[in-house]
Design a protein around this nucleic acid. Sequence first.
DNA 1: GAAAAAACTTGACAAATATCAAGAGGGATC
DNA 2: GATCCCTCTTGATATTTGTCAAGTTTTTTC
Lengths: 192, 192
Amino acid sequence: MIHVFKKYLIDKITITDEEWALFEQYGVMKKLRKHQYLLQEGDVWKLNAFVCQGCLRKYHVDDKGIEHIVFFSIENYWTGDRESLLSGLPAKSNIDAIEDSVVLLYSIENFELIKSKIPAFKDFVIGLLERSFVVSQNRVHSFISQTAEEKYLDFIKTSPQIAKRVPQHMIASYLGISPETLSRVRKSAVKK
Amino acid sequence: MIHVFKKYLIDKITITDEEWALFEQYGVMKKLRKHQYLLQEGDVWKLNAFVCQGCLRKYHVDDKGIEHIVFFSIENYWTGDRESLLSGLPAKSNIDAIEDSVVLLYSIENFELIKSKIPAFKDFVIGLLERSFVVSQNRVHSFISQTAEEKYLDFIKTSPQIAKRVPQHMIASYLGISPETLSRVRKSAVKK
DNA sequence: GAAAAAACTTGACAAATATCAAGAGGGATC
DNA sequence: GATCCCTCTTGATATTTGTCAAGTTTTTTC
């Protein structure tokens, strides 16, 4: 299953066989069954996780027990709780598998080590972070300016692969609207 | 005015006099009068801007001509349009001064040059980006889970310095609510 | 310091969205 | 293949928030 990561990596940067050996050496593969947790609220997150197969979600649970999904990760996405990673404090979020999944884990120490040994990888990770920030900012913009319908149409346009495989009520959660509203939005959007 | 940046910098990382000279050499100071643009939609953004004094906002204008504020930057904050910077495409956002302001500008080429010459600075910028991403994600979380009142109370708690100096209707825009709703929220929140 | 502009508040009403409740459909499981 | 669970839909109603309009207060400008 590590070939998924290798393909991803060589598609982004040029690396030697010796360098690739580092990724193989330090990476730990983990299988997750549907509904299984990768991170539970209260635990400290100390990893970087690359999704080789499947689909995961990161979410918060509020006082009323309602789940709010912050993001989805499918194949070739990274996941984790950067806030806990940076602060060393217990995570406020949960990450679990929506489908049976396979993730490749790097402890933060090993990840830093690899970055220091492979400057091109470090630069790639910086670029990734920069793009992630832009995506996040655009999502903020969508929340302050769009209606439920606009957010949904935007979502299926920008994330069709995720829209297809994730249950509708989770998409509603991700968009910050109720499942009923999403159902109605879809119905009326089809007509147009 | 560059002393503001120097203070900021030596507070974060240890640098030599020679290294500081780079920042002085490449930085361009720019004064902005209130309402003056630092970036206008349609222009390509190629800088990194550090705010030495004043307050700026980054915002988008929608089809109806309504401004949606994505973020505020005061002293010791950075601003810019990373999306345009990364893509090389015209910016979709505007940045202007809410107060008379002074910003320190680095062209992206010079900024990269400095980062390559001062690894500690490069690492600091990465950490900054990581924290910015976390802040942005938390803001997304606030949008999917909080009411207008909760968002406002959260805002004045986490950004009291900004809440104090920015007009209320701009805070409303930043929170994604109407000025009238914010006015009512404030009124009812005071009672509690 | 007067005039003009901008910012804020308030009320009445409209629209969007949430909530609650019931039921229908589809897929997993034994 | 029957049962159960999960998901989605739909209707009725409640709540939140937005819109429009007017008036008041505050700030800016000359």
